[in-house]
Amino acid sequence: MNIADLLIFIAVCAVTTFATRVIPFVALAKHADHPLILHLGRYLPPAVMMILVIYALREFRPMLDSQLNVSSTGWPMIIASIIVATLHLWRRNALLSIIGGTGMYMAMVQLG
């Protein structure tokens, strides 16, 4: 990829990301108290987070095509996810949970 294409790619990402941040400030200032906006503002973010977790774990498909079929990273992914969740429920320290789970995942993938 040449430098011009790379710069255009980065510019598109930057403008799009800024758009998602600035739109409410310019477009919805007058409707901030509308109950539908409040409803979506309350429930959409947690729903999106949950979807992103499933998206990130989608390679784990133990029953693909009605057969036991787990990719080599499938089980490490699930075990590391349980470690992250357990650490986080226990200590409530985001950094500890992320580093602990990622370290264990890297160890399982590299050594296993």
Binding site: A80, S81, A94, S97, I98, G101, Y105
Partner: peptide, 9 residues
């Protein structure tokens, strides 16, 4: 996997 961990947290 750090990204997956971030989403879980």
């Amino acid at each position: 996997f750090a990204l997956t961990a971030l989403f879980i947290v």
